[in-house]
Design a binder for these strands. Structure first.
Lengths: 316, 316
DNA sequence: CTGAAAGCGCTTACAG
DNA sequence: CTGAAAGCGCTTACAG
């Protein structure tokens, strides 16, 4: 029997005669043969491999989105190549080179900011790139994201509508958190409220610890905010605990707003007002992009804004 | 210039003449050429690819360990293939087949329980397998882990030494959490304490929500534990919050013990007593295994127990 | 429905 | 230090 027929058995079973298929199946079971996908990818120039690049494994805010994407990919028969781009810009570009070397059918880029040289190089590499979780001004290729500026504005409008004006922000120092911050401040201003005090933390999402310590410092400096806006649900949780420890009531004295709608947000006492991103929707759209590309179809709308939802709960 | 020389430039630069290297470098820069690692892997039968299989992206307790392993691998020039084995046993084996198809130089298996057929098949696949985070009785190949039974026993001894006897356990329902539970109960018994009441939760690590709800139910049923032992720091956090909400003092009335030593454990009020696993040590050992294998060296000690530390803080 | 043959882009002894 | 040539294990028109 020829290797061609075995190849067809795996890739287009319906084209192989029943009897032939049975013989192949039998040998495969006995020997535990697994087709070499390297050779297959090389020969067909379709690797069924998608790279997913994130700053850190389980950048916590991305986690559910990445999980959704990876599940969708696995179900569609793709392998997932993980790229950790966090350590440094140089490191990120090294990762990307090593990823492109494996000729994935696509690269999903989450929360990674690249130099414009790197962006140009990626564009020329010929592999499909899907940037998620943001709406870049100069997309490399495909985009599934949302506007962080608008998130900040939406939070500000909600704050103003609740009659609060003295905001304290606990914010990460990444590009996206900064955009949310800018949107928030701009909208506060146009609502006539004073600029918030901002505590900025470097290094990924703000943590429970960040929330506690930022709030401790802020209150000790004699400030008295009526709303605390946090760049993650964790720091919001920490902020709430610190507020309570210092005798402030939430939401009577001060509101607390998070970001991410993590599993515990609805379980805190009081339950946490926050912003929810639909990770599964991102995964679905990304997969749809890849399908179109693999069928060689033209993509008319290459930027998809999936939006976000402000979930108002008890905390403010 | 022959492809052989270019290949040497990338894989053994020192063997190429300066002038030749310069010419190659020049062309590479101008064209953005990236060697095809599929072809390279096929030709050399070393893929520089390591698969990492975990139940879910960011199974939270594994996160820092996986991050450490992935960093170590990336620094050593390996690509990381991600396998999500969580959905179901069948799904896990499908993932493994698809992983083996890419001929990785090794597979790191974390928190995945496989049927004995699957284990046998993997053993015969010829790829190096490193099981981490556990000490399986019948290892597939290499192991870097610790004894969950001994973790449970260590917690029990600490509890007994603190003079506490009425334990409530909040436990996940996975194989490892069950072992910790068994070790805990066994050691409690041999210390003369009554068996604890156990609240078991299916599906990965126990969450903040699990901790709150389990404790609410337990207290409402009229019980009055003097120690709460949790299978994750999250559920311990939830338990502490619920205890406080119901007027119990920690640790005066009841101690709380977690698992994982996550970033917030030292930041809670009171700070959380918990168990710490050294993820970086696991990563280092795993990489050392891979190096030995790639050099074709014999591995004398194929099972490494990296142990754990009980970190006693204010909560009990 | 099946096979012979060329080719995918590298690596690696083997010569030189 | 460099090149010619075989080979890695598949896929894919092309015949039949």
């Amino acid at each position: 029997m020829s290797t061609a027929t075995v190849s067809r058995y795996f890739n287009a079973p319906d084209v192989v005669a029943q009897a032939t298929a049975a013989r192949i199946r039998d040998v495969v079971e006995r020997t535990g043969y697994v087709p070499n996908l390297l050779a297959g990818g090389l020969a067909s120039s379709r690797t069924k491999l998608i790279a997913v690049a994130v700053p850190r494994f389980s950048q916590p805010l991305f986690a559910s989105t990445i999980q959704a994407i990876a599940d969708a990919l696995a179900n569609a028969g793709y392998g997932v190549l993980l790229g950790l781009t966090g350590s440094s810009d140089q490191h990120a570009e090294g990762q990307l080179v090593s990823i492109v070397g494996r000729r994935p059918d696509g690269i999903v880029l989450a929360g990674t900011s690249l130099s414009s040289d790197a962006r140009k190089w990626l564009r020329n590499s010929g592999v499909s790139v899907i940037e998620i979780w943001d709406l870049p001004r100069d997309p490399i290729d495909l985009v599934v994201g949302f506007s962080h500026i608008r998130v900040g504005q939406a939070i500000a409008r909600h704050v103003l509508n609740s009659g609060r004006r003295k905001a304290f922000m606990i914010s990460a120092d990444g590009a996206r958190a900064r955009e949310r911050r800018a949107g928030f401040i701009r909208a506060l201003r146009s609502g006539g409220a004073p600029d918030p005090v901002v505590a900025a933390f470097t290094g990924g999402a703000t943590t429970y610890r960040d929330g506690r310590s930022a709030l401790a410092l802020h209150l000790e400096s004699g400030r008295d905010p009526d709303v605390v806006v946090c760049s993650s649900d964790w720091s919001a949780h920490g902020a709430m605990d610190e507020l309570r420890a210092r005798g402030r009531r939430v939401p009577e004295d001060v509101a607390v707003i998070g970001f991410g709608d993590l599993d515990f947000a609805s379980e805190l006492v009081p339950t946490l007002t926050t912003v929810k991103i639909d990770g599964e929707a991102i995964g679905r759209k990304a997969l749809a992009f890849l399908s179109l590309r693999s069928e060689g179809k033209r993509i008319q709308q290459s930027v998809i804004d999936i939006g976000f939802s402000l979930i108002v709960r008890e905390s403010g």
